[in-house]
């Protein structure tokens, strides 16, 4: 059953609607991600759940409790901030103990809890360090420990990794996921990084202009975007319309108005190697390579098929390496990969 329930939440700043009738529900122990570019309303929604922003209409329930009108301190949520927001005047131990002290817990009661938490976040022996003596990654772990030590009903993560560099981001991301699964903590994670969202979440809520655009498991979101917005935001999807394919003179024209195709789903070959793809399951055409760029493990080709611009990713191999800029190429798009999109204006 749904554990967190958000019903018709709206919020306006001045005249700008930041959240428009947002509703969502989350199961207990689930890790969900609110994904979207800055300004899409994801942080506003998260802060509304924490009670740090008020909302104009709607309600928020956690378990059976209506928390819409509660002060942040009474909501039993844990939160990790982008800036960590560790208290600079307190060491690791006291930062983690802060929430328990605020509950009025006695020292002998909270000490074991804090020590257990320090172990969980892998900072044994660093309890006396002050935040400025720790690395960014360690600071973020302290922030996580501080949020978790009170065993909140939900954990809210507001872009917690964006201030870290790529490598630490990946390690810490996996650690967060592991800890979350161990504690079976219901978690709402906010990010603008689709890769992060795809690797860490049980479900992803893609947000756009204050509304939820699509909900689904990561593979579902990635392979079957429903709108042009999601297709463009999630990957480097090629998005084209019915008339564009028509003009490009493709071999088969699928049903629908607007389509999305992942760049790695398209097959590319030099002009004289096209026979394999002439069956009815492919839509084929001829074009010219405008640009070739090596992006690490894949090569990206920008191809022009009679005005239809396609981005195609291919793995390295000797045949592929023969394709250069200005090569004449054949392209083949599997019809199963050609996802029709809901048309939006």
């Amino acid at each position: 059953m749904s554990y967190v329930r958000i019903d018709n939440v709206s919020k306006k700043y001045n005249d700008l609607a930041v959240l428009k009738n947002v509703s969502l529900s989350i199961k207990e122990g689930e890790f969900i991600t609110l994904l979207g570019p800055s300004g899409c309303g994801k942080s506003t929604l998260l802060r509304a759940i924490a009670g740090l922003n008020d909302i104009d209409t709607g309600s928020i329930h956690v378990g059976d409790k209506d928390i819409t009108y509660l002060y942040p301190k009474d909501r039993e949520v844990g939160m990790v901030f982008q800036s960590y927001a560790l208290f600079p005047n307190m060491n690791v131990y006291n930062n983690i103990a802060f929430g328990l002290k605020m509950e009025g817990m006695k020292k002998e009661h909270y000490t074991p809890l804090v020590e257990e938490m320090i172990e969980l976040i892998d900072l044994q022996g660093k309890g006396n360090r002050f935040p400025h003596e720790l690395s960014g990654g360690q600071q973020q772990r302290v922030a996580l420990g501080r949020a978790l030590v009170k065993r909140p009903k939900i954990l809210l993560l507001d872009e917690p990794l964006s201030a870290l560099d790529a490598k630490i981001r990946r390690t810490l991301r996996n650690e967060i996921r592991k800890i979350q699964q161990r504690l079976k903590m219901t978690t709402i994670f906010v990010t603008h990084d689709q890769e992060e969202a795809l690797t860490i979440s049980d479900r992803i809520f893609v947000m756009n202009h204050g509304t939820i655009e699509q909900v689904g498991a990561p593979e579902e979101i990635y392979t079957s975007p429903k709108t042009e917005y999601v297709a463009r935001f999630i990957g480097n999807y090629n998005v084209f319309s019915h008339s564009e394919i028509l003009e490009a003179g493709m071999s088969v024209i699928p049903q629908g108005e607007l389509f999305a195709v992942r760049p790695e789903a398209i097959v590319i070959a030099l002009d004289n190697h096209t026979k394999d793809y002439t069956e009815a399951t492919f839509m084929t055409g001829m074009g010219w390579v405008n640009q070739v760029s090596v992006l690490g493990n894949v090569i990206r080709f920008d191809v022009d098929v009679n005005g239809l611009k396609l981005t195609i990713d291919a793995l390295h191999d000797t045949e592929i390496h023969k394709i250069k800029e200005n090569s004449k190429v054949a392209v083949a798009i599997p019809l199963t990969e050609c996802k029709p999109l809901n048309h939006r204006d």
């Binding site: 901030f81 005047n89 009170k150």
Partner: peptide
């Protein structure tokens, strides 16, 4: 952010002000 963090952790505005903001 410090105020937000302290409040989410269960501090009232007044106690957050004097235990987190003032010392810093």
């Amino acid at each position: 952010d410090l105020m937000d963090a302290a409040e989410v952790l269960g501090a009232s505005k007044v106690s957050a002000f004097h235990s987190v903001i003032v010392p810093n």
